[in-house]
Design a binder for these strands. Structure first.
Length: 815
DNA sequence: TATCGCGTCCTTTTT
DNA sequence: GGACGCGATA
């Protein structure tokens, strides 16, 4: 019995449980293994059922069941969209546990996101009845990577309590590296180098392994050298970036076979979610770990591989059978999510891709409605139509929660959001800047980090002059020089430099005060609750005051976010524990209150499902995106097509595709061609719809739309001249500046289908503040303004930037 | 040192 | 259209 090297004390919160159960526990019951390959007979199941056993297998279809019960040997589960992938994965784990094949701590289960890990944990818990305990190796690639590294810190050349750099830190550090190596940081931006290095790390390349040709991509051949210098700096700082969490593990496993052997003994079963998204480093990591046990089960869908641009290798999944000889492949093709028409549309589209493993989704369900395709004059008309369509559906008792608008690029969101705001349609944006990525949260965390860990130079640099305290570049540079010369952390250098007269008196005083504050806070670390300390730090540093003094409309939200942060810290026992969580789990559940339409990118929609899905912006250049095609050619186009496939398959009942003839891009009004994907949809599954609003554009008979004639969605004969001037761009521009009550506005409202106004008035008068002409109000997005007209629950507001907008009252606050 | 105005660039994004 | 970064200026 070999015991795993004791984890290092610092930063290992999970220490007490870490080594149990011991590895030499009695073998799991052998009898249970006999039915591995063949499903138990009906009578055997009846017997089992009588003993009250595997209810978790109920309701699985034969393929799913096969995937659950084939526990031994390599297994690839090709799970099409909506075929019960997560169910198989979680049931499989429950099965392994229930049949005593392994203890929870002997199962390695990897996901990509914390959310997926969390969900899996919960669902397994439900299956086995209760909370899942002891599955310490269920997590993301990165969180498991850190866990392994923390247990063997000294072997990888790090010290206990090493820090994990976030994006900002990484770029800040690279800037220094560039400067130190005399690289012109205008010509060679740090951001670009960061991407380059991430790319190398994704492919498992250490500085010495970077192909010579590629090393020349950056700064005239200095690429690999800068990469090496960056790694050296990381070691100095006792830090690593996300890529290192895997690379260092790989190095550890290769250099220390004994350590790897320990993990081999430990992990009897390995499960991997979303295998099509793994990159080379993750693949190598898995390969090394899987050498100990053939029981590796990867679940994925080559048709949903949409992260090639960040290093995912579809090839990993395509190659699975070669990599793991004797592998069994199970296809899950029975779809439980979408109607037959939606499935057929998606399948027809994805069939245009080469190099697939190939699956044919089917359903026993109804044919359902055809996928609709509509064409609009421009992006604003498209947004208007979506808004009206949603209102109409809502009146038919559809829940907003069950609808989503999926866009290719976030720049498409603005037009749609604007429309929703005007209509008063509640919506939520998914995947916007997340909580921990917000400036104020990062700043606050930087303060806390420096208190807990004075050697964290990058965080110190982040907040040294935030709020402004007269410590500009020149001062920081001096501190840097001293730190470098003496090989000490910046913070210590700051403390020493204030003892000299190297700085201007003003800077010296200011820096002295700052270091003294940090000393004070650090002294309080011992005897104060970390939440109280956080409040003290935010107050005394002047950080809260900085936002209180800020007059921008978002400052209030920022202050609330800070409060939320402190509230969230209560969930942790120590500051250290909190910081550890934050560095890895940049993720906080956002409130999902109320009935709201979801708005997100197609990438963000992966794994989700909605009854009704709107897919706007299907235009050449936007979708497929030009850049994707320019940079990656056919592979890029195929990835875009997979993205389209992902989009359509999110829909359960209704998928509504649309494209605009004109779109505002980069501030320019440009004409666009329908996406080739539109014409690739199988004709039988599609219904071309007339624009659903009076304003929807038709191909322009006077020649403007000349370029659109090829599409089979242009029906000669049905074209009419503009029925009015409403669909001209000029009209729309004019419309923006109208105040309420104008003739056209009334006309517009009465023409269209009834709006939700009645309902909204009813809903919002309950606790509506009383707005009147002249009221000063604040809008989350548009800022402050003055009410110039009140019309029921709709306000016309002249914002301070001169914009006049009509907004539903519930979107603004009195100030 | 802080701030303003100008030029540049524009997918997707998790850890 | 708008975010960001830089250089000139107060």
């Amino acid at each position: 019995m070999i015991s795993i090297q004791k984890p290092n004390a610092a930063g290992s919160g999970d220490l007490p449980h870490d080594d149990d159960p011991p590895f030499d526990l009695p073998e799991a019951p052998k009898a249970a293994r006999q039915d591995d390959k063949n499903s138990p007979s009906i009578s055997a199941r009846a017997v089992a059922a009588a003993r009250g056993q595997p209810t978790y297998l109920d309701g699985l279809n034969p393929e799913q069941r096969d995937a659950v019960e084939t526990t031994e040997g390599p297994l690839l589960v090709l799970a099409g969209a909506g075929t019960g992938k997560t169910r198989v994965l979680t049931t499989r784990i429950a099965h392994i546990l229930a049949t005593g094949r392994a203890y929870p701590s002997q199962i390695l289960a990897v996901t990509f996101t914390n959310k997926a890990a969390r969900e899996m944990r919960e669902r397994i818990g439900t299956l086995i009845g209760g909370t899942l305990e002891g599955m310490q190796w269920l997590g993301t690639f990165h969180s498991i990577g850190v866990k392994i590294l923390r247990r063997h810190v000294e072997l990888v050349g790090l010290k206990p309590g090493f820090t994990i750099l976030d994006d900002d830190d990484q770029v800040r550090l690279l800037k220094q590296v560039l400067e130190a190596n005399g690289v012109d940081k205008d010509r060679w931006p740090a951001r670009q180098l960061a991407n380059q290095i991430d790319g190398w790390k994704n492919r498992g390349l250490t500085p010495d392994k970077v192909p010579e040709g590629e090393a020349y991509n950056f700064a005239a051949g200095k690429g690999a050298l800068l990469y090496a210098a960056y790694q050296a700096r990381l070691k100095d700082l006792n830090a690593c970036d996300f890529g290192d969490l895997l690379l260092e593990c790989i190095r550890l496993f290769r250099d220390h076979p004994d350590v790897l052997a320990d993990y081999h003994r430990r992990f009897r079963y390995i499960l991997v979610d979303e295998y099509q998204d793994t990159n080379v480093a993750q693949y190598l990591w898995l390969r090394l770990l899987a050498k100990g046990s053939p029981n590796i089960c990867c679940v994925g869908d080559d048709d949903q591989s949409i992260y090639g641009w960040r290093g995912a290798e579809v090839d990993n999944i395509l190659r699975f059978e070669k990599d793991f000889p004797g592998a069994k492949v199970i296809r899950l093709e029975r779809n439980y999510r979408s109607t037959a028409n939606i499935l057929a549309a998606a399948s027809g589209l994805i069939a245009k891709n080469d190099g697939r493993l190939g699956k044919t989704l089917f359903t026993d369900g109804a044919a359902g409605s055809k996928v609709t395709v509509a064409n609009f004059w421009d992006d604003e008309a498209e947004a208007r139509a979506i808004g009206e369509s949603i209102e109409r559906l809502k009146r038919k008792n559809e829940r907003l929660n069950d609808m989503a608008v999926l866009v290719r690029a976030s720049s498409q969101m603005r037009a749609i959001e604007d429309r929703f705001i005007t209509l008063g349609l509640p919506y939520r944006v998914i995947g916007g800047p997340r909580f921990y990525e917000r400036q104020e949260i990062k700043d606050a965390i930087a303060y806390l980090d420096v208190v807990a860990n004075p050697a964290n130079d990058l965080k110190f640099e982040r907040i040294v002059n935030v709020p402004k305290r007269a410590l500009g570049d020149t001062t920081v540079k001096r501190v840097h020089e001293l730190a470098r010369a003496r090989a000490i952390p910046l913070y210590q250098a700051a403390r020493e430099i204030v003892e000299t007269d190297e700085l201007t008196p003003r800077a010296r005083k200011s820096l002295f005060d700052l270091t003294r504050s940090f000393e004070r806070w650090r002294a309080n670390l011992e005897h104060m609750r970390h939440t109280d300390l956080a409040e003290q730090i935010l107050d005394e540093s002047g950080y809260t005051a900085m936002w209180q003094a800020d007059k921008s409309p978002q400052s209030q939200t920022r202050l609330e976010n800070l409060k939320e942060l402190v509230r969230f810290m209560h969930d942790f026992d120590t500051l250290q524990g909190f910081l550890e969580h934050v560095s890895l789990v940049m993720d906080a559940e956002q409130g999902s209150d109320g009935d709201r339409v979801s708005l997100m990118t197609l990438h963000g929609a992966k794994g989700l499902e909605f009854g009704i899905v709107f897919l706007p912006g299907w235009e050449e250049g936007l979708f497929p995106h030009q850049r994707s095609m320019d940079e990656s050619g056919k592979a890029g186009l195929e990835e875009e097509r997979r993205l389209a496939y992902v989009g359509i398959t999110r829909a359960k009942r209704l998928a509504k595709i649309s494209f605009a003839q004109n779109r505002r891009t980069h501030g320019l009004y440009q004409s666009a061609l329908p996406s080739r994907f539109v014409d690739e949809l199988p004709v039988a599954t599609v219904e071309v719809v007339e624009s659903e609003t009076p304003f929807g554009g038709r191909p322009d008979p006077f020649g403007y739309g000349g370029g659109f004639g090829q599409s089979r969605f242009d029906r000669p004969g049905s074209s009419e001249p503009f029925r009015s001037t409403y669909n001209t761009p000029g009209w729309q521009r004019a419309q923006q500046s109208w105040s309420s009550g104008s003739k056209q506005d009334k006309k517009k409202r009465s023409r269209g289908p009834l709006t939700l106004e009645g309902e909204l008035v009813a809903a919002s008068t309950a606790n509506a503040p009383s707005f009147k002409t002249g009221s000063r109000v604040r809008h989350e997005k548009f800022g402050d303004g003055t009410v110039t007209n009140v019309d029921g629950n709709k306000l016309t507001i002249e914002f301070d930037d001169g914009e006049i907008k009509r907004v539903v009252a519930s979107f603004v606050d009195l100030i």
